[in-house]
């Protein structure tokens, strides 16, 4: 049943703005990274890669994640995606219709969560695809590092699990679409500050996990995997409990 609901959700979004958002954001990052590489690759970044004994693809990934700020912004983009997905229900007042169908609330809630993950994953993949295009246009001498970028996509996806669960809850809870987005924005800024000032505490904040998703050493991997999955399990469970009790009139 969840799969059917998931497909229904995708049909609902077929002509929606969600496709515009998940393509325009990675397009923006691609243009920005192209500009960055065009201006600095031959004069500085290639030398930096050689000095650090890494490939140009690693440098490109780090520029995208740390300098451009993709790692910081990603949870905020997830909050926008979640808002758009729930917006259709509030706009058309279609909760009533949904809940009069012979489908459990839990299944509706989980299917929405999967839709958020689906569109977030598309956005993440498009971002990495954009990086591949930038590297090819600039003419990196090394072969494309498929494994590195596949890992990058995978770890970003795991890192957003907790944030997706939070915004699945917030977007279902607040009728005003702006409130979850504001919460997402404040959390993004707050988590960045905590990450810089108190890294020990930052490990417990789901909004910080995307920051670690590029640094694929053992500790960061564990943090992303355990943090992402555990926070998702807890927050999704709490969200389901709350959603089941809610009267939607």
């Amino acid at each position: 049943m969840i799969l059917t609901l998931f497909k229904t959700e995708l049909i609902k979004q077929k002509k929606g703005f969600i496709w515009l958002i998940v393509t325009i954001i990675p397009l923006g990052t691609m243009v920005a990274m192209f500009l960055d590489m065009y201006l600095r690759y031959h004069t500085y970044l290639y030398g930096l890669a050689q000095n650090n004994k890494v490939t140009s693809w690693v440098i490109l990934l780090k520029e995208n994640h740390n300098i451009l700020g993709w790692g910081m912004f990603l949870p905020f983009f997830v909050s926008i995606i979640a808002t758009i997905i729930y917006y259709t229900e509030f706009e058309n007042n279609s909760w009533k219709k949904h809940l009069s169908l012979p489908v459990s609330k839990v299944e509706i809630y989980i299917s929405k969560f999967f839709v958020i993950l689906f569109f977030s994953l598309i956005m993440i993949i498009l971002n990495s695809l954009g990086l591949l295009i930038v590297g090819k246009i600039i003419g990196f001498p090394e072969a494309f590092d498929y494994k590195l970028y596949a890992n990058y996509i995978l770890f970003q996806f795991i890192a957003i699990l907790g944030v997706s669960a939070i915004h699945n809850f917030l977007s279902s809870y607040y009728e005003s679409a702006i409130t979850p987005v504001i919460i997402g924005f404040i959390s993004m800024i707050f988590s960045k500050i905590v990450l810089l000032a108190r890294p020990g505490i930052a490990k417990f904040i789901p909004y910080t996990y995307t920051h670690y998703a590029n640094n694929l050493n053992g500790e960061s991997k564990a943090l992303v995997v355990y943090g992402g999955i555990i926070s998702m399990a807890i927050l999704l469970f709490l969200g389901i409990l709350s959603f089941k009790k809610r009267d939607i009139l």
């Binding site: 703005f17 515009l20 958002i21 325009i24 990052t29 201006l39 600095r40 702006i178």
Partner: peptide, 23 residues
Amino acid sequence: KHIGVPLGIGSALTLPVILVINS
């Protein structure tokens, strides 16, 4: 009408600022 559009486009355009100011 949809709030996601100005937010998405605006934040996508804000992201590159840090890179652009270096040029």
